[in-house]
Structure formats: C-alpha cells, structure tokens
Computed example of a mutant assay.
Amino acid sequence: MKKSIKYILLFGVGALAGITAERNKEYLINAQFIRDHWHFRKVISNQEAIIKADKTMIILAFGQSNSADYGEGTYTCRNEVYNYYKGDLYRAEEPLLGPDGSGCSVWSRIADMLIDSGLCNKVIIVPIGVGSTSIQRWTEGDCRKKLDKTLDELVKDRIQLTHILWDQGETDNVDGTSKAVYKARLNQLIKVIRDKGFKAPFYSSITSYFPYNNNYPLGINPHITGAQKEVINERADVLAGPNTDSLNLAYYRQNLVHFTEKGLDEFAHSWFEKIRDSK
C-alpha cells in the first residue's frame, strides 16, 4: 500500500513537472533560464556610489532581437560599464543579463564609445530586449509586464534613466501593422515610460528591414519607418536613433537578419553618433 502511494506521488510530481516544462519550454531551453538562475556573476557592492557618480549614463535599451544579445561573436568592455538586472548591478559581460538572446549585444560597444569620447565616465546598461517581438507585446503583452517590472525596480532603487534606446520594427513589418497603428502604439509605449516618472529622451531607431515574409522592396516597410519618423518629428522628447535599415549588406548580417561583428561595430557607431550629436 505504501509503495503504491509512493508511486502515485512520484507519478503526480513527474506529471506536474512535465506540464510545467511543456508550458515553459521556450523559457527553459533558451539562455534566459540559465542567466536567471545560474549566471554566477558577482553583484557590485558599491552600487549606490556608481549610480550617483558624476557623468554616469544610465541607459534603458530594448526592442526585438537586434537589441537582445543576438549578435555574432563576443565583446569585452575596456571601461567602467555595468549591467543593471533585477535590482542588482554587475560588471557588463556578454551576453548581457536581461535580454533573451545568448549571443552578443550592441550596447557594450556603445558604452565604451561614450566613455572613450569623454561624454561620460561610467555607463549602466538596463537591457530588456526580446527577440521576434511586435510593438503590441511591449504595450500590452508579456513584454509590457517585463518593462513594467524593470521600471518599478528602477523606481524602487531610485535610479533615474538618462537615455532610452528603442530598436524594433521587423516583426511589425512581417505582421503588416499599419502606419497609424504602429504610430499609436509607439506613442502608447512612450506614455508607459513617462507615466512611471522617467523623463529621459527616448531614441527610436528607424527599423523595419526583414528579408523574408513580406513584399516590400529590399524588405524595408515604409509604413513602419514612416510611423517612427512621424513620432520623432512630432515629439520634442523623442529623438532619432540610427537607420538600421541601411545596414543590410551581407557582411553586416549573419543569416541576413542579426548583426555580424562588423555589423555590430557599425550599428554601435551609428547609435553613438546619434547620442553624441544630441548633446
């Protein structure tokens, strides 16, 4: 009898674990699960001193895969670059903590360029990009929850952003999102951030290029880029990021979508110029 109960319990636990794994299989098999639980990175102890130091830039960086650690190769920071993640501060190390990719980001390169140029002494990156996401997921879906949680953590830790960098548009190209709808959602996304008390300039890249599943010449969707440009032109608190659609040559993109190391270098320099020239 006891053995039967034991087997029933084991079966029940196994079944429950199987159901949980099935429902969360995407999370379990990608790099996010490993970095959530076993990243083994050392928390910075003097977090407050770094945050309050003179000439420290604090950058929220998000969007879809090209903002989310999907780049080729790796990169090692040469300056004081930090990664804010779930209320803690770490030395920035690729892949950054926060995005869902397992490759390399553009943000570490940008941070080094900003420091090398003398625009700042330190950079704190708050990266939360998620691959293949539409703008709707950031305004009302699962990514909105991730954004809200991150902003709430920043508020709790009394961290004020200095820059907000948005790089997204490819999925909406494929989805056929209209210009009016994308524009409304981008304004809604900015409102989410403003309503949390963050007044830093919001930079929107001009991004739509995707080489598959659409009928636009060169894979560039004028409805998406038109919406991005209109929001930039109509709002004083929104600035132009780089035009990533122009970085579509084969040596810039692995699998025609994500950036090679050369592509990341160009992408980073384009972002750096936009931030530098807006000062």
Rank of each mutant, 00 (worst) to 15 (best):
D116Y: 06
Y82C: 04
Y84L: 06
V126E: 02
G103V: 03
R109G: 02
D142M: 14
D88V: 04
G131Q: 08
A111S: 12
C120E: 04
K122N: 15
G98L: 13
S65R: 08
A111L: 07
Y82R: 11
C104N: 11
W138Y: 13
G73N: 06
S65L: 09
D88N: 15
E94A: 05
Y75M: 03
I124H: 08
P127F: 12
G129C: 10
D88W: 06
G131E: 07
V126M: 13
P127Q: 14
L119V: 00
V123K: 10
T74I: 01
E140C: 03
Y84P: 02
T76Y: 04
V106Q: 11
S108H: 00
G98C: 12
R91D: 11
L147S: 06
K86M: 14
R109V: 05
S67R: 10
W138E: 05
L114W: 06
D148R: 02
Y70P: 01
E72I: 00
P127C: 10
L114T: 02
A92N: 02
C120K: 01
Q136T: 14
Y90T: 00
G87V: 04
K86E: 13
I124R: 07
A92V: 01
D100M: 06
G71P: 02
S132Y: 14
V123N: 07
D69A: 11
